[in-house]
């Protein structure tokens, strides 16, 4: 089977039991996507599949024929950072760094959801969504950070999105 990862097509023959996460990490050497819980509960493995954020541990690799997958490595490199990656450094939106790739990929997907006008649990208006700190926190709650850099992560995302923090 084939899928595209970070713009490059890969031919793989995964074990039918293999999660997309394990194929990325163990077979393709893309270890930027992290395994925290393997149960879809922590968000450390968040990647973008066809533009939408998903937990790579909760989906089997064999389900992704012809899909377009973006991981943290495709978003930017240490030398050429994506604006969100740069903002995470500036606002210290991490400590140990293990949840960080997932937080950043999740933020990319989340901002796209907001751009499409999808409301959240805390949206005051279902038609017009205004991104603020509360919206960001609500929408990022699938990504745990035990170091608890949450306020800094929200600051970083708010800056990139041009959102009011308060």
């Amino acid at each position: 089977m084939h899928f595209t990862i970070n713009g490059a097509t890969h031919a793989v023959e995964p074990d039918i039991r293999a999660s997309l996460l394990d194929v990325l990490r163990e077979h393709l050497g893309l270890t930027g996507t992290k395994k925290g819980c393997d149960h879809g509960q922590c968000g450390a493995c968040t990647v973008l599949v066809n533009g939408r954020r998903i937990n790579a541990c909760l989906t089997l690799a064999v389900m992704h024929q012809d899909d377009d997958i973006l991981t943290i490595e495709g978003l930017g490199s240490a030398e050429h950072l994506h604006p969100l990656q740069a903002a995470f450094i500036k606002h210290d939106g991490y400590q140990c760094g293990y949840c960080t790739p997932g937080q950043i990929c999740s933020a990319v997907g989340m901002l796209d959801e907001v751009a499409k006008g999808w409301p959240s649990h805390v949206s005051a208006d279902l038609e017009t969504v205004t991104l603020d700190g509360a919206e960001i926190s609500e929408r990022m709650s699938g990504n745990l950070c035990r170091c608890s850099a949450y306020p800094n992560i929200v600051d970083a995302i708010a800056e990139v999105a041009g959102a009011e923090r308060a």
Partner: peptide, 21 residues
């Protein structure tokens, strides 16, 4: 100052123990 290893962590290139090649 920003964290010295920041660029490695945000780009997913900092290798944690299990990720050793």
């Amino acid at each position: 100052l920003d964290r010295s290893e920041g660029a490695l962590k945000v780009s997913g290139t900092a290798r944690y123990g299990y990720e050793h090649l």
